[in-house]
Amino acid sequence: MSLPQFNLLRPRILEDALSLLAKHAGESPASTRVVAGGTDLIPSMRQKLFEPEYVVDVHHLAGLKEIRQTARGVEIGALASLTAIEQSALLRRRYPVLSEAAATVASPLLRNMGTIGGNICLDTRCLWYNQSPTWRKGCGFCIKKDGDLCHVAPGGTTCWAAFSGDTPPALLCLEAEVEIASASGTRRIPLSELYTGDGVAYRKLRPDELLTRVFLPESSADYRGVYRKLRVRGSIDYPLAGVAVVMKGSDGHIADARLAITAVNPAPLLVKGVSELLTGKAMDESLAAAAGDLAAKIARPLTTSALTPEYRREMIRVFAKRAVLAAAEN
């Protein structure tokens, strides 16, 4: 499958990138796409899911690859590769859940190319969407692209394509914030506010904006962390369900805990009530099971990927329980 024709723009500094985005995004929202590692965008462009007039390659922008300690926590440039996240001694020591999640993304080769910013901005996925134009024509297209039908929730009017990034649930547990830049300035928002819960407009990022940095607050450092990923193969696969847990203990009791899920909804979700459920208690099987039930309650998998939705929801329950137990034992 050939790539559609586009103009490749390769700015060297952030200001140029932002002004190019400002200039071209104004023409129409679909006219530009940003590419960094390209592991998500390039296959999708071959499938004609995106046919932008301009592709802004930000991969070589200076100053957006560092992972560094600051007074308020750790700052990660959006262009840091997933391999760098996986191998960073600083992150492994202080925010282990993030390194563990990054290590499960796709395969080593793809992690070398893929960036943390790309993993956060990953397009939502669905078996009825990530297909060739001929294929999509055969099913009458879908809400997310070129059509008005939803195949996973027949008769529905919203898109249920699943958010399938591995690092965002870990980042949600760490209460990460992201910096979003545009020609008119930068803003900083909690990561949880980036996602909408809708499969089509899944992130609040204007076409002229660029996600530039990720901040991990000092208050989230030194939590024990566990990421558990359901997949058919031990490599390559996107998550079919994913659970991240962070936990802090004192005197055999849980001092604080957070749990987030991915790949079963159009957005990664922090599971509410987990901290309240676990804090102050000693970990045991039934407590872990209760955390699993909380997670499964908000999981809403549909037939967007392999394995049945019922199984994936059940695995959110099982994986959440196991992750909580593992975090308590760490």
């Binding site: 008769g155 037939t303 392999a306």
Partner: peptide, 12 residues
Amino acid sequence: SLWFKGKGPERH
């Protein structure tokens, strides 16, 4: 591994 509660997807 891919089945639908209810009537299943609409086609073209």
